[in-house]
Amino acid sequence: MDIEKPIIELRRVTKSFGRQRVLDDLDLRIERGKTTVIIGRSGSGKSVLLKHIVGLLRPDRGEVYFEGRRIDTLNEKTLVPIRRQISFVFQLNALFDSLTVGENVGFPMTENTARQVPKAKIRELGRRCLDIVGLAGFESKIPPELSGGEKKRVALARAIAMDPPPKIILYDEPTTGLDPPRADVINKLIRHLQHEVHVTSVVVTHDMKSALEVGDRILMLYNGRFVADGSPQALLESDSPVVKRFIEGIAEPEELATISRHADFDGRR
């Protein structure tokens, strides 16, 4: 019964910033145990959508549910137990610069005020999680000493270093800014975590390779609405011009027209 219920549900969610409507009457049901990928162009509202799931942003209209419980009306304090079941891997990693890698990874447990987790257990779990992401022995380093890929992997380790493990991990552009081999490592890790920890994942990305590799289901966000929803194979076979252009990485005619106009002004054509 419980397995069939969506772990996350968004009902008719609308969100605007100033006059710009970023999410427009959006419905979304996220299945338990699967990896759902949301693709879309930069600035299309993917990260905004992700932040609604963990209550970092509130919808102007509409409702957000976590395991059947409405969460968009909860205050920061009552959201805490919900947030302790969700991990968020931020686009810029958001590692705390003043803490070591070990302290960063142990942070979600150290700050768990609901119950005191013994230090030895925090250290042990932190070590295991760093080992999973291939960074064993990095505990005493500080984030500025790490490369982009290493920081991303520490952020992944921090996301899973929870006791009990998180029910859902939200990834905001996990491969952005990484070279292809490093991006591949991250993709493999996301897959590995899904199989190993049986966690539900929501990945927001504009990296098509990553989307196809990690996703069980892919949705495309365009002008505040979903224009595609299906398996990776279904997406590849889509007839929609918007989806096709995104997959093939082709700019829209209006954008090209703007560039041509500028070229005219410069007298370079």
């Binding site: 963990v54 920061e76 947030r83 931020f90 686009q91 810029l92 958001a94 705390f96 700050e111």
Partner: peptide, 22 residues
């Protein structure tokens, strides 16, 4: 401010820690 623009304040909130208190 740097913590704010690099999403560290959001990260604290997402982990259930109040950034103002912390």
């Amino acid at each position: 401010g740097t913590m704010n623009v690099t999403e560290q304040l959001l990260a604290l909130r997402s982990m259930g820690a109040a950034p103002i208190r912390y």
